[in-house]
Structures are given as structure tokens and as C-alpha cells.
Write a protein that binds this DNA or RNA. Sequence first.
DNA 1: TTGACATATTCCCATATGGGAATGTAATGT
DNA 2: ACATTACATTCCCATATGGGAATATGTCAA
Lengths: 122, 122
Amino acid sequence: MARAATTSDVFNAVAEPRRRQILSFLVVGERQVGEIVTAVGLDQPSVSKHLGVLREVGLVHVRRNGRHRFYRTNAEAIRPLHEWTATFERYWQHQLNRVKERAETQMGSPGKSDPNLTKEKQ
Amino acid sequence: MARAATTSDVFNAVAEPRRRQILSFLVVGERQVGEIVTAVGLDQPSVSKHLGVLREVGLVHVRRNGRHRFYRTNAEAIRPLHEWTATFERYWQHQLNRVKERAETQMGSPGKSDPNLTKEKQ
DNA sequence: TTGACATATTCCCATATGGGAATGTAATGT
DNA sequence: ACATTACATTCCCATATGGGAATATGTCAA
């Protein structure tokens, strides 16, 4: 099987740096495609294709007005990503605490430098 | 140009659902490969390849002991992802507020239902 | 209508993929 | 030494990609 489609979910959609760039650009306010093109420095068809992906997974909304299309990022759609990463937050805090504790232990009794004294695992 | 490599960065690495599953499984404590295999229900070579990707981008750490390899997720490596999504947090809160305000406005003066009364854009 | 403009879509292609199957490698037990 | 166990790596392949080029679609203006 090949890799999952970029339109399969938000995780795949934001894996592309250009799309992240576009999302950041469009979150402060809606812009038309031409502005996005000059902002990201790709040519128009490429931008349109990226916008198509972002549209399909709901990361952007479009408003049509004459021959212009105004895009803006739908921040709500980024929440699942944020929440998934948040489930790991307490663990990286654990890691930081372990490092800090180790540092403080060494400060308190310099000389003892075995890094495996603190309980690890589990 | 093809899609960026899964090993190009954390965003690409976690785009694969199986790898997210593995990361969640390995964050509570280290496990050996065999346990991961039964946990995710893929066969061993596939799991090893996923672990290889996760290793290469620093999302997991390995400890070798005899013929076993103990993997655990390096939560720190997920922080960049968390922080990127966090830059959108205030915007989805904005959206929620707009929805709430609109609901309250309609409660206060039912009948006026033009959804474009509230200031948009910029 | 004709033309200019704004965007989307299609076609082409080099490249990376993830799974299955087979094979390689290192450590252990006998 | 040999078989077994625990992983990693390699090979194969159908599939999706992102960019460039060309083309299509839709809207306005004269």
C-alpha cells in the first residue's frame, strides 16, 4: 500500500510545509489566491492545488466574490492536532523534571556523577 | 517533485496513523518490539520500519539489552508540533466567541437574524 | 462577442511510500 | 557448532505525490 492521501486527514494535510505556511498566512484574515501566490512564492496552479487539499480536509473556508475567491483558515480544524499533541504534554514535562532533578542533585552533592542513580523506567 | 520524505520532519512522521498509535503506546513506558507488534497488529517488519522512521526523526529512543530493543517515545520531540498548533489557539477561540455572541444576540432580540451584522475580517 | 483577468483542473513524471515476503544479523541456549 | 529467538533490512509493487506546463472555467469590461 502507498502512503495515505494528503486529503485523508488533517495530519497528512499539514505534513506539507507549504500548506502550513499558507495556513499561517490565512489565519489572520482572508486573502485572495493572488495574494497567497505572491506570499508563498509558488506559481498559481501549485497554490490552487494546495488550497484544494486544505479545502477538502476542512482546514480552510472559501468565500466567492466575482472572479475572486477569498480563503481563510478554519482554526477549529487544527484543534484535533493540538489535542493529540497535548496528550504528550505531561510526559515531556516529566522528562524536564527528571533533568532538573538530576541537575539539582548534582548541585547538592557534586562529585557523585553517576547519571543512573535516579529511578528510571515504567 | 514528490512528497517530502516521512523522515524529513516530525510533521511527516506523525502523518501515518500507525506511527501515532505506536507513539501513544510507547509514551507510558518502554516496550520491546514484540510487544509493539502484538499491540498494533501489524507484522514485525512493518513495525520495524515504522520504528525506523520514528527513530530517524527523534520521536523515539532505543535501549538495547541482549537481543531485545526497548523503545520509548521521546515526548520532547512532539513539542514543536504542539507549539505550532498552539499558534492557532486564539483564533479558534475567536471563532467560538463569535458563534457564542451571535447566539446571545439572537436570544436578546429574536427576529433580527442577519448573520453579517457582527464585524468580520482583518 | 471579444478579450482580459482570476482560479481551477489536467497531464506528465521523478520520487517516496507502506505492506508482504524473503533474507540478513546479532545474541542466546544447548 | 547449531538451532532458535528478536529485530532490522532488502526487494518488489501499486499508489499518491508536488511541481511545471498547458488548458479549462468562470467573471467582468468594452
